[in-house]
Each structure stands twice: as structure tokens, then as C-alpha cells.
Design a protein around this nucleic acid. Structure first.
Lengths: 336, 336
DNA sequence: GCCACTTGCGCAATCGATTGCTTTGTTTTA
DNA sequence: TAAAACAAAGCAATCGATTGCGCAAGTGGC
């Protein structure tokens, strides 16, 4: 009854019958692989162009053992406004994927549970994966490696033998800190986030490296780690105000946001009484009366590159193990 | 050579051979459909649990004409920080999809080009779709309807005979405006965004309805539409300052953000000299010294509901044509 | 003890593409 | 002109699941 209305979709056999050729010929006409006469090719192509034949993706996947899908793994992020990183990155990935006739499957995960990851791999729903948040000794990355799934990490994994794409966080931070020192800053505090995440490890590395290069002492008392909540940031600020610091370097714009607010509440003027810089720019930093010095990364580009490298890797091209993208240092009023 | 290392994945036939049964029996044991003995069921299940067999998704899709994928269509958004809506919504969709063993394919589109949409539908890569931004007389929605693809729109389409899930934007706005009037506001300007988008149409509707209910005159001079850039918002504010308005209602937090900044630059105090409210809360509104009155919507829930309804619809359950979710009016300092 | 009915499970077709092999027909070459 | 070479296109197997049908064994009624 109801089914009578459902128009059946055209298959390769329909096209073949219509043109009086075999299905294999149609297949070869479309793919261009195998031997086929030019005249037949054109005739079939013309028919398809006119009538709009689309091959069944499942049948193709089955026959070719290839899905033309890639997965992108996003972390569960509670405070989305503060975390445009992953979604911006996704835009880049999607752009390149589309351009290459791939679709992206998005998996959101808390980072611990591999069930979904396992299912999607073992069901062979994708040809490869992009991990957008990496940890030291990354669990997911190891899992993928074990299962011989092509994958690229956005961010470092701290392991060799994995394809990684990242901004040069360590280098950028090192340069930023060095520049700030050269502008007369004496004692710079560092406020960092979750130290299990590689990005945070890299940034702190940069901070430390800049101290070493300029032969300054590293003072552990003014290095704060794992500031994952507003309250922790607030406490850190209170604490460092007692420690004769003249600049606060924030690991990201979320922390920076809290720092700026806290300083305002304390009546401390930026930059006169305290200089502030962030290792990551996003629009949040435009919300204050004083503009904030920061590092700027092109995150869409990061996504694009990660995707391009993944696709190359899937197609057995040779790709670099580690790709580091450029950054920009943006000096603003907050460190004048 | 290289291929010798690649371990072949287990198929249903491997399981069958190993247990001395037929593939059909294994299939029936897994699905629970068809006639199968309880003892055999358990034996097969036990083997699978132990050895971890996962069916090939492509083969299943082909056999069942069902992909267990849904697509979510996101608009191209330039200013991500200002637009957490779509991504928050995606979180809700993903949550419900995962819980029901569906994966989500994300398509990002400029809203005009149907090529990707067409491809993904005609290739039968998904069982249904969620549209996250709707326009009056929606092109995509019509396209999907024509192709008999199950779909749900997040936001209204202005058409009957389509499954729509939305917050009650019109009702919420109407109530907010009414409440503000009851608190003594005399003349309220409305600053709206792109009037092709249904959400904006609905909100203005609410504003108008509140005027009618309270028997106030509607003054077209203080209704601004299509304020899609900072500059336009700025100009609108300049303009309405000459018009004896005592409250500005902003269509969303992006506009509100610009309004608050502009008023600050003009030295106009909120709420003493001008009251301000927004029809949409996001964390952006927490960035000012004065807290802002707004409407609050649970966007993750919106995504969840949309997805649940889509899945029900795919499985031929009866679903409501129009689902309107609740809202919250948050009165803060900006309208005191 | 015979027939009807149910239960458990295997056989083989099917979904819609791809691809190695074969056949057919044409062209080239000796 | 016959043999060799080659191009074009069809045949049929294959990918890995699902499912209608049918057979054999078991159960129950009378």
C-alpha cells in the first residue's frame, strides 16, 4: 500500500539495462578503471548526467572495503563558549573532507570510554580518524595504532610513529615569553590548565625554555598547573599577588578571562600594575576595556591540514610524521 | 608482502564455521529475529562476547537498506564564538544518536548549495537528517520532503507537514516583553537579525504580539531588522537614541553584545538611562559589569529532542508535527 | 500409531556495487 | 590469408550480511 508510492532508486543495473550494456561496463565507465571504449564511456556518462544515477554507498563500501568516511573525535566540552577550538577545527576538517568526497562522522567522547571508538572501527564505518585532543601517553591513539587504523592527531601525543599535526605551541610560547622579557618584564607567572593534555605540556615547555635561554631562574612557586575551574584560577591570582610578579602568562583564553576579571575585582590595573598575556587568542579576549597580548593560531587551517594528511595517509601517500604550523604573536596594550 | 601483516577481520561466516552452525543462525542469534533455539542463541552469544565479533556495517546497510547514520546540517558560521548554538545542539543530537547506536554525519553548508545534500541522500549514506537552521520557505526542507527523506528541523519552517522541534520563541518573547512592560517600560526598541531566518521572524512576532495584547501601538521606526554586522547594530543604536526609547530588546546575544559596548562608549548607563534585554542567553552576556535580562533556552535538550523525534520517525512511530520546548525568563539588573 | 503442528536450523537468493577472467570481434602482422 | 595481438564488453564470483523457504526432528492430540 504505502510502499507503492516509494520510488525505487536507480541502480547500476537499471542504467545497464536501459543502455543495453552490462553492469560491469557501467561501473567501468564511471570509475574510468579497466578497459572501456571511449564511445561507450561517453554514452553512459551522458545517460548518467541526464538521469542522475548515484551509486549505493553501502554496496560500494562492501565491494571496495572503503567507506569514504572519516571520524573526528571531539572531547566532551562543558563550556562551549570558551572552547571554540574543537569546532573551529572541525570546520577545517569538514572543508577538506567535502572537497575530497569524504564525509565526517563526529564522535563526542569523555576521553576514557573506548566503546564507541571500538564499535565504529570494528564495524568498519570509517577509513580513518582524527583525534582532536591528545594526552600524554594517549590511550585512544594507542588503541587506534593497535588496530592499524589510519589516524592523525591534532596536537602531539608525545610518541614517535604517529602522524601528528599541531601548532608549534612550545616554540610560540618560548618566543612570546622571550619577547616579553626583552620588553622589560622581570618575573612572569604561568597559569596552566590540565597537565594531562599535551597542548598544556607544550606551552609550559616553551615558558621554561625561554627562561633557560635568557638564563633566568625558574621559580616553581609562580607556576600554577591544573587550573581547571574559575575558583582555582581566582585562588592562583590571589596567591601570586603576594609574590611580586609583574606579568601573568595564561595558558589559554579561558584562564585569561578569569584572570582579567579577578584583577578588575581586585582593582589592579592592566598593564600599569600587572601585565597579562594569553597563549591562545579567541574572541573572548576582545571583551575587555584593555586589549590583550596573545598568541594567535589559525585553527581552521589546523583542521584542514590534519584532514589532508589523513586522506593522503589513507591513500598510501607518504606523509610527514610531524607537521608544525605557524603562529602569530599579537602584542597589545596588556603588556605595554 | 605488506598485506600479510593485516589481520583479516572476523566475519559472520568465521563465527558460523567455528561453532559448526550456519551464518543465518548466527545472524538470527544476534538480531533475535526469526526462529532460533535458546541454547544455540546462548552458545553463539557467548562466543561473540568472548571473541568480539562486530558485523560489517556496509554489508548490513546493503542487506537491510538502513545505515544507522543520520546527518546533521550545520550552517557555515563565521563567528563561532558568537554562535555556540549549533554546536551545543549537535551535542544533544550526538548524545541521543549514540545511545541508539546511530552515528552522526556532519555537513556544513552555506545554505544555498544542495550538492552535498543531494549526494548524501542519493548515495543513501543516512537514514534521516536534522536541519539546524531554517528559513522561511525553506529550500533544503522542501528538497528533503521531495526526496521522501525523514527529517526534522530545529526551528520552524513556516510550513505544515514537516516535523519541527523548536523553543517557543514567539511565546517566550511575547512573555518577556509583556513582563517588561508590566515593570514600567514605556517604549521598547527591537533590534533583530537576518529576517530570512525563522527564529528571528518568531521573536519579532512575539514582540508584536505583546504590544497587541497590552494594546500598545507598534512603532515601525524602532524596529530594526537584518542587523547582521557590528556596524549596523551600532548605527541602529545611534539612531534609536534619538527616539526616546527606554528599553532595547535584542534578538540575540551577538546583537546584545554590540549594544552593550556601544552604550558604554556613548557613556549611557544600564539600566539607569537605558534598559537592555536579550532574547537569547549565552555566556557572552556574563562579560559585562551589569547582568543582562534574557531568555534562556536549553539547547542541548533541543538537540536531544530533535534527534529522538527523528529516530522515532525513521522507525515509523507516530511523532508530533510540532514540538515546542520550554524557556526561562531571566530578569537581571539590566532591566531594573 | 498416525497426522497435524511447531521448532530449530540450513540453503540459497538477495542487497548493489566491483573486478578477474573469458569471449567476441577487430586490427595488425608475417 | 592465416595467425597473432589486442581492445571492448560480458559473465560470474565476490564483498558480508539478512531473510524467505523448506526440510527434518520433535511434540501433542485422538
Amino acid at each position: 500500500m504505502a510502499n507503492e508510492n516509494i520510488e525505487k532508486v536507480m541502480t547500476i543495473h537499471d542504467v545497464a539495462r536501459e543502455l543495453g550494456v552490462s553492469a560491469s561496463t557501467v561501473s567501468r565507465a564511471i570509475s574510468g578503471k579497466g578497459r572501456i571504449g571511449e564511445a561507450t564511456r561517453k554514452r553512459i556518462q551522458a545517460y548518467i548526467d541526464e538521469h542522475g544515477f548515484y551509486p549505493n554507498a553501502a554496496a560500494q563500501s562492501l565491494a571496495q572495503a572503503k567507506t569514504n568516511n572519516i571520524a573526528i573525535i571531539l572531547p566532551e566540552v562543558k563550556t562551549l563558549v570558551d572552547m571554540p577550538f574543537f569546532h573551529t577545527c572541525m570546520y577545517g576538517v569538514e572543508e577538506v573532507a567535502q572537497a575530497n568526497d569524504y564525509d565526517i562522522i563526529v564522535i563526542i567522547t569523555n576521553g576514557k570510554d573506548t566503546k564507541n571508538l571500538e564499535r565504529i572501527i570494528m564495524n568498519r564505518k570509517v577509513d580513518g580518524m582524527i583525534l582532536t585532543r591528545t594526552y600524554e601517553n594517549d590511550f585512544f591513539a594507542k588503541f587506534l595504532k593497535e588496530h592499524q587504523v589510519p589516524f592523525v592527531t591534532v596536537g602531539k601525543t608525545g610518541e614517535a610513529d604517529m602522524i601528528q599535526v599541531d601548532h608549534d605551541n612550545a616554540g610560540a610560547c618560548r618566543e612570546l615569553v622571550t619577547v616579553l622579557f626583552s620588553k622589560g618584564i622581570k618575573k612572569m607567572a604561568y597559569l596552566g590548565g590540565n597537565m594531562e593534555q599535551m597542548v598544556n605540556i607544550s606551552r609550559l615547555e616553551g615558558y621554561v625554555a625561554a627562561h633557560k635561554r635568557t638564563k633566568r631562574e625558574i621559580n616553581e612557586d609562580i607556576i600554577y598547573k591544573n587550573l581547571t575551574t574559575k575558583v582555582l584560577v581566582e585562588k592562583a591570582v590571589e596567591d601570586l599577588l603576594l609574590r611580586d610578579v609583574d606579568c601573568i602568562l595564561c595558558e589559554d583564553d579561558f584562564i585569561c578571562d578569569e584572570v582579567v576579571r579577578k584583577l578588575a575585582r581586585e582593582g589592579i590595573k592592566i598593564p600599569e600594575q600587572m601585565k597579562v598575556a594569553s597563549c591562545h587568542y579567541s574572541r573572548v579576549l576582545d571583551n575587555y576595556p584593555v586589549t590583550i597580548t596573545s598568541l594567535k593560531f589559525d585553527i581552521v587551517e589546523l583542521g584542514r591540514r590534519a584532514c589532508q594528511i589523513l586522506l593522503d595517509s589513507i591513500n598510501n601517500k607518504i606523509v610527514p610524521d610531524m607537521t608544525l604550523l605557524d603562529y602569530e604573536i599579537i602584542l597589545k596594550e596588556s603588556t605595554k
